[in-house]
Amino acid sequence: MDFRRLTYFLAIVDHGGFTRAAAALYVSQPSLSQAIHVLERELGSSLFHRMGRKAVLTEAGSALVAPAREALHALELARARVGAVRELRAGRLEIAAMASPTIEPLSTMLRRFTERHPAVSISLRVALTREDAIERVRTGGCELALLTTSSPLPHADFVAHHVGDHRLVLVTPPDGPFPPGRAVGGEQLAGRRLIVGQRGTGIRAYVDDLKAQGIDVRIAVESEHRMAFLPLVLAGIGLAVVTESWTDLAERAGALVLDLEPACVQRNVLVTRRAQLTPAARAFLEVAVPAGS
């Protein structure tokens, strides 16, 4: 049903006739009458008794008044809410993120965004692998995905915004096999028990590369839960290769964090679809992506 015709209908009710309603709406009376005729045909009932310059509601017309006001109120409410989202006075933004970049750089991104747009709520979705993160964006479940990768994205439908790099580091117990302050070469991990993530992650790829080079690293635990890595390391179950974003947490927990050599760098990228983004997603990119990148 045309909301314009409902507006015309209520104007006639409120102003007591077609002539006054037409003047209040700044439309010609024939146009107003034509719109009401169309509305009556749509509803299959006459809405007014025409009595000279007066218009008296029929029974059907009286039944339409309340629903018409409710419909127009709902429309105005919808317009107000859309306007609030557009102006970032409300709204919700869903972001998929892998574990390591959730610590950093996502924490800093969220702080900056929420300082600027406190009325927009953020929903974070767990992505276990790079492909999981991209799939959430592809299917529309999330507008943005933050992931760590060592290779270009093979998907032409997405845009990857570079938001910084992180080196891989080795986390050991404080009394671990390597002295503090000295980098550890990959060959030195031979015979060591490692705690690793599942395939599809950059830290697992590093360990798999060592094995492909003939270095006898041994997988003690494979876990999807990154927060389990530190307790497992501190319990003496194995060593863990993670991104340097974990350094502060690991050291505060009492673990030893060592550089790896040669250095292995992972890129943090914020992924979006090439389609038009919502105002909230565009605003997030403005605070997340360094100028000129």
Rank of each mutant, 00 (worst) to 15 (best):
A74R: 00
R50P: 03
A63H: 11
A66G: 11
S62Y: 02
A80M: 04
S62I: 08
A63K: 13
V65Y: 03
A78T: 06
R53S: 10
R69K: 15
A74T: 00
L32P: 01
S45G: 02
A63G: 08
A71R: 12
V56H: 06
A55Q: 03
R69A: 09
K54A: 13
L47G: 01
R50H: 09
A63R: 14
A71L: 15
A78N: 02
R50I: 03
Q34S: 15
A63F: 04
G61E: 05
E76Q: 15
S31Q: 14
H37R: 15
R81V: 07
H49I: 15
K54E: 13
G52H: 00
F48H: 06
I36V: 15
L47W: 01
A63C: 09
A71C: 00
E42S: 11
K54M: 09
R53P: 04
Q34C: 07
E42W: 08
E70S: 09
L57A: 04
T58V: 11
V38R: 15
A35G: 08
I36E: 02
A66E: 13
L43T: 02
S62V: 12
M51Q: 11
S33V: 08
E40R: 04
G52M: 01
G61D: 02
R50E: 01
R53E: 05
I36K: 06
A68P: 06
A60R: 09
I36D: 03
L72G: 05
H37N: 13
L75S: 00
P67Q: 11
H73L: 12
T58D: 07
S45D: 03
V38E: 14
S31V: 11
A55W: 00
A71G: 01
A35C: 10
E42A: 12
L77V: 12
R79Y: 14
R53V: 01
S31I: 07
K54Q: 12
V38M: 12
S31H: 15
L39F: 10
L32A: 04
Q34N: 12
L43W: 01
S31D: 09
M51V: 10
S31E: 05
Q34I: 04
L47R: 02
E76F: 03
H49K: 14
V56A: 07
A80F: 05
R50D: 01
S31K: 14
G44T: 04
R79S: 10
A60Q: 13
R69P: 07
F48L: 08
A55C: 06
Q34R: 15
S33G: 11
L32I: 02
G61N: 04
A80R: 15
H49F: 15
A80E: 14
P67L: 11
A55L: 03
E70A: 14
S62L: 14
R79E: 14
A78L: 10
L32M: 03
R41L: 10
V65N: 08
H49M: 12
R50N: 06
L57M: 07
H37M: 07
L32D: 01
L39C: 10
V38C: 07
I36Y: 05
L77N: 09
E76V: 06
S46I: 02
V65I: 11
L64A: 03
S46N: 09
R81E: 12
S62W: 06
A74P: 05
S45A: 15
H37Q: 12
L75V: 02
A63I: 02
A68F: 05
R41Q: 14
V65R: 00
E42F: 07
A74K: 11
